[in-house]
Design a protein around this nucleic acid. Structure first.
Lengths: 190, 190
DNA sequence: GTCTATAGGGGGATAGAC
DNA sequence: GTCTATCCCCCTATAGAC
């Protein structure tokens, strides 16, 4: 049961949590409705189809990321602090009932989700990579990160490993997630 | 439509492919039955519940891995060649209709799959990590791999990133997967 | 905006004939 | 081992009252 002020917003919150917890094929309108304390049909009023709902969740997730990275409190950080902030997002997800990143969740089920949602998750993934690449590039330029090869490839490696580590932690525990993050940092200091 | 000799085996093949393609919540007995050219109930004769089927798939997957790593053709390879063989498994998955590793697929849906399957996937994940850790340790001892920190942590990082990269490739293309594998190798040569 | 009611389909699973 | 038939549940989605 959740207090309602703005239904639209509350539905998105619940849908996002369910997506990160159970996956797209693992949650239903009924789950949202019962937690919200309303009936099935009320959810359909706000989001006609499940695809609409999924897309809205991903769009809001991306908008939030944009707000963060363009906010001075993140923008003006040092490269190391930026990276720590980024890892903190995932650490918080792990701490929040073992959630995983939307990107990993939806890409694991990629071939059994609607086409519009597939496209949306691809856009989000690209933007996460873009920001991480720029941050790595900036850090290497400043001499605080050390790695060989293209920043784009290192970014792809790091993002993949953090998302994989969130999934791994579900079966093997939070410690494994922390170990991966520490190893990523260690590798960047070599 | 698939030729039937040993139904049990064919069902496992199809179930494994579907799990890697669509996820546990994304496939049904009907999918298997229609591809096999039989009726729904025939599958239930071999595997009474979907959980039974999932567990059998994971068990076979693990047995296969055991056979491989204990076979002289892998066991006697150099550490670099072992690692290349290992990456080759994932490269083949990617090439095979964009499949992902069972471990990543089931852990992404972890909170919406049966408990017995959760336990089984944890065991598999541990064994993959164990082998990778030993291989990295061997390679560092021989001076061909270079990395800081514990082999167990480096193994967790590498396995997470390969599994994450398979998922990423679904939205962003095979090239991204290859980039990650190359970056992993590059980082091991630093 | 939310309700009741319901359509319409798919899912997992079982019983009993062959 | 596979079939037909069926049960029962859950799902997405819609229509129309309030």
């Amino acid at each position: 049961m959740v207090k309602i002020e703005n239904s639209q917003r509350t539905i998105l919150n619940l849908a996002e949590a369910l997506l990160q917890d159970k996956g797209f094929n693992g949650f239903s309108y009924a789950h949202i409705a019962s937690e919200l304390g309303v009936k099935n049909a009320a959810i359909h009023y706000h989001f006609p189809s499940k695809e609409d709902l999924g897309i809205a969740v991903v769009k809001r997730y991306r908008d939030r990321f944009h707000l963060w990275i363009n906010n001075a409190r993140v923008k003006d950080l040092s490269p190391e602090a930026k990276l720590d902030w980024f890892f903190g997002i995932y650490t918080d997800m792990r701490a929040d009932k073992g959630k995983v990143c939307l990107v990993g969740s939806l890409e694991a089920e990629f071939n059994s989700i609607p086409a519009g949602l597939q496209a949306e998750i691809g856009s989000l993934h690209k933007e996460l990579l873009k920001w991480l690449e720029a941050t790595l590039s900036e850090g290497r330029g400043a001499g605080v990160f050390k790695f060989n090869g293209e920043p784009a490839n290192k970014a792809a490696l790091i993002l993949s490993s953090v998302q994989g580590a969130l999934q791994m932690a579900r079966a093997l525990g939070t410690r494994k997630f922390r170990d991966v993050v520490e190893q990523i940092k260690l590798d960047l200091m070599a």
